[in-house]
Design a protein around this nucleic acid. Structure first.
Lengths: 172, 172
DNA sequence: GTAAACCCTCAAGTTCACTTGAGGTCAAGG
DNA sequence: CCTTGACCTCAAGTGAACTTGAGGGTTTAC
């Protein structure tokens, strides 16, 4: 009911006062002001900050998070449906991240150890991972299968070759 | 067999020349020099760079990666067993990251939407995630269950309460 | 009504992971 | 030999995400 002063928000979210001011300046959260010019945050700021922190953990930039939050209504306190819609937009990104990590976990020692790690071609190596999608519709990024000698896109020699060969690894 | 000049390494790994020099300065990779002072990299640098890039994707800092790479032998080209040992040390971290993301995916709309997101207490929210473990033995970090009204560590009022109540969310 | 705790702005600083630029050297092909 | 492209160092710059500090106003609880 009562709006919260910045220190309260900091306490309840575990985010520093300076960071909250920074987020506000970046347009991630908003406040009203008292007559004396102090910030008073509507309570839904707590949820917004939580969203920001979780999104950061997933690997999104503040910029991406801002666009995501732009999906919330501007003129009223977000409803549950608003938040659900927002979090639903993460699914593809999360699925993709999870897929990458699972592949990484399951293939890591074979992959790093044996030379299948073809760098540019290998799904494990592929960056450009988070940071995309979210503001602009689902976009599955990597998801491709292991290369296993498949042709390199540009017809350049497979990097797997290079890593495989030579004394990069010595037989024990 | 032949050692690689920096440009070749850049091409084959997709990492910029400047970044390679930077990695070397940071002690992540090493090179020999020609008579004229130019870098010549042993071939296993390709694998090291791959390791670095993958570790970064998992969310490790260069600092953490350096300690991980310190597990490789200094005096000889790493064997496959060396790499396997190194990548095995990631398991706990990977398992933990995957667990967090799965929880996040499966609980997200309920969690963000309904107010269970208790900020400091919620496993989804918990940072301090990657960056630990790797140099210093397995250390499972979060992994705890959903709070569901459980007492806040310090006896402070549960944040879940605060997020739940008030007009942070309006019924549709 | 006043002191302590809290809050304000604005500018500058910090860390991480690099990149850019200036000014110059090295090496491979013709 | 000589040119051209790759390479060298070192210092400074970049962008993201904050933090710190100076100097000063505001709120609240007694």
């Amino acid at each position: 009911m009562e709006p919260l002063p910045i220190g309260q928000v900091a306490d309840r979210t575990g985010v520093a006062v300076s960071a909250l001011r920074f987020y506000e300046q970046q347009g991630l959260i908003r406040s009203e002001r008292t007559g004396g010019g102090q910030r008073r945050y509507p309570r839904d700021v707590l949820r917004r900050v939580a969203f920001v922190k979780i999104a950061q953990q997933v690997g999104l930039s503040l910029d991406a998070i801002r666009s995501a939050l732009a999906g919330l209504p501007d003129d009223r306190t977000p409803t549950r449906a608003d938040w659900t819609r927002l979090s639903a937009s993460w699914r593809p990104l999360l699925d993709q991240r999870i897929g990458t990590l699972l592949r990484l976990r399951d293939d890591l020692d074979s992959c790093i150890g044996c030379g299948c790690l073809s760098l540019k071609a290998c799904a494990l190596y592929n960056p450009g991972d988070a940071a995309a999608s979210l503001g602009d519709g689902a976009r599955y990024l990597v998801g491709d299968e292991r290369p296993a000698g498949a042709a390199t896109p540009s017809g350049a020699p497979s990097d797997a070759r290079d890593i495989d060969s030579g004394p990069g690894i010595r037989s024990p």
